[in-house]
Every structure is written in C-alpha cells, then in structure tokens.
C-alpha cells in the first residue's frame, strides 16, 4: 500500500515577500470593489496558511488588518498617495479574511470578507481628550450640515448643480460648536446658478463624482458654512475578471465608478483646477 500524504496546509511567515504580495493584491481587491466609504491600506498581516489545491496551484488563506485612509472610494488618487486616517481623527480599522488562488504564477481572489470598526472612544479620549468622535451618519445635525454645505456650495458654483450622493463621515465639534461632515456629490445636467427645481435635474450619463468637506457652525439666527469640494475626473473602469467559483463572495458587488467613457473636465480644465473653495 502506497502511503498517501495528507494534504495539509503550511504556515507562512506573515512578513514573507510573497505573503505581502498576496496581501497587497487583497487590499487592491477591497478598494476596487468599494462604492462608498474610504479606501483602506494594509496595516498588518495577521495569519497566512497555504493550502495545496487539486489538480494544481495553491490557495492562500489570509487574515489582514487594514486602516482607513483619507481618500474616498470614488477618489481616483492612487492608494500610495493617500494618507492614513490618524487616531486623532477617529481612525477606522478593517479586519479581512481572504482566499487567494495562486496558479501558474498568477494570483486570483476567490473570496473576501471584511468588517470595519472605528477605534474605541475611550482609546481616543485617553490620547486626545478634546478630539471630536465620529457621529452616526443618521444624526439629523449631520444631514442638515451636509444639506446646508451643499446648498452654499451650489449658490457659489458656476458649474453643474451638484446632488448629494453619500455622507461619508461626520463629527460633532464641541469648540467652537459645529458639525464637521464629509460627503460625496454627483454632477447633474442643470447649471447650479439657474436651478429652480432641483428635482428636475438628472445625473449625467457619464457619472461625475466629487468629494466635499464642510464645517457648519450654528451662530445666533444664522449658520456659518465653510465648504470645499473637489470634482473628480470621470474614470474609465476596466471590468476585472472574477473566477466563477461557487460560494465566492466579493466585498462589494459593483465597481467603484460606472464603466463609462472618460469625460473631459468642463472648459478643458485640469482636474486640479476643479478644486473649489472654501466658500464662506
């Protein structure tokens, strides 16, 4: 009787170059499938197991920790140029489990599962007692601040009327009493200064998104709004082939940006010239 060796896994050093290569591919996979929230960056590889696969290849079972960056998922800035969200800004961590197939020298993500968690309030306040904490996005003050900021921006904007897409993060600042909010917007077919009924404005067929940061302070009988918006150049998205493996799951189902043809910025402006603000 020929002894049949058991097909067990082998453990890898988590800082092994190949483990890191697989982890970076996994992080790219996360970011390429995000539609909302912020891009994440690799912080630590927690565990790596490599399983033999019949008839050929190997499957990497990977656990990684990620950190939220300041680049929104719709922001075309390369991840390498994105800053990690600092603890004082109430950092958010991701915990991800991946299965990645290595076959013929090629890596393919088979499955991905991530959970994200903000740092504990206790930890932040120990380090920085005055730092504002993240506020739930369904807080009415947050929604009102985003609406007020976008209205103020549209009133001063010479370009397309912008619609709110998603409130991405918010903090209630104690001193001076104000609401800080970050949100995404999309350009419509209306001119901002001519809009009478926003409900009649439609999103552009080639979706063009933007990202705004605003601080809205409640003053006596008035609001003081400071808002800056950046309109992203439309990005062509090349659909990525995914393996037809039963039970495979992606982090998010759809690409970050609609697979539309590229659109030039209005008036031939460069992307950097589309950064507008602050509007007071």
């Amino acid at each position: 009787v020929t002894a049949v060796p058991l097909l067990g896994y082998r453990e890898h050093n988590c800082d092994d170059p190949e483990a890191e290569q697989v982890a970076l591919l996994a992080v790219d996979h996360i970011n390429n499938h995000l539609q909302q929230g912020y891009k994440h960056i690799l912080n630590r590889i927690d565990k790596v197991k490599v399983w033999p696969r019949r008839p050929t290849g190997e499957v990497y079972e990977l656990e990684i920790d990620t950190l939220e960056t300041t680049c929104h998922a719709l922001d075309p800035t390369p991840l390498a140029n994105c800053s990690v969200r600092q603890v004082t800004q109430h950092a958010v961590e991701g915990d991800c489990d991946f299965h990645v197939l290595k076959q013929d020298g090629q890596f393919t993500v088979l499955s991905a599962k991530c959970d994200s968690t903000p740092d504990s309030a206790e930890d932040i306040l120990k380090l920085c007692p005055d730092c504002p904490l993240l506020t739930p996005l369904n807080d009415t003050r947050v929604a009102q601040a985003a609406e007020a900021a976008l209205t103020a921006f549209n009133e001063k904007n010479n370009g397309a009327y912008l619609q709110l897409v998603e409130i991405a993060r918010a903090q209630l600042v104690p001193l001076p009493a104000s609401t800080y909010v970050e949100f995404t917007v999309a350009a419509t077919d209306c001119v901002a200064k001519e809009v009478t009924d926003p409900a009649k404005c439609n999103l552009l067929a080639d979706k063009q998104y933007g990202f705004c940061k605003a601080t809205v302070a409640e003053k006596v009988a008035r609001e003081e709004v400071e808002v800056t918006c950046t309109i992203f150049p439309a990005q062509p998205v090349v659909p990525q082939p995914q393996p037809g493996v039963a039970g495979a799951a992606a982090v998010e189902p759809a690409p970050a940006v609609d697979p539309a043809s590229p659109v030039s910025p209005p008036d031939g402006q460069s992307p950097s010239s589309l950064v507008v603000g602050p509007v007071l």
């Binding site: 050093n13 988590c14 630590r44 927690d46 950190l67 603890v87």
Partner: peptide, 27 residues
C-alpha cells in the same frame, strides 16, 4: 531547529512568524 541526535540544540530566539509587523499603528 534540526540537529544530529548526538548534538544538543542550542536555545535560540523563538521565531513568531505571525502576526507580521504593524506598518502604521495598532488600534
């Protein structure tokens, strides 16, 4: 550490292959 049976294994540092290094900070 693999040694010949007649040779005693010298105590070495315990290698912890995982988890790996923290690149930014741990929360």
């Amino acid at each position: 550490v693999v040694v010949q049976p007649s040779v005693g294994a010298a105590p070495g540092p315990v290698i912890t292959p995982c988890p790996g290094k923290v690149r930014y900070f741990k929360i």
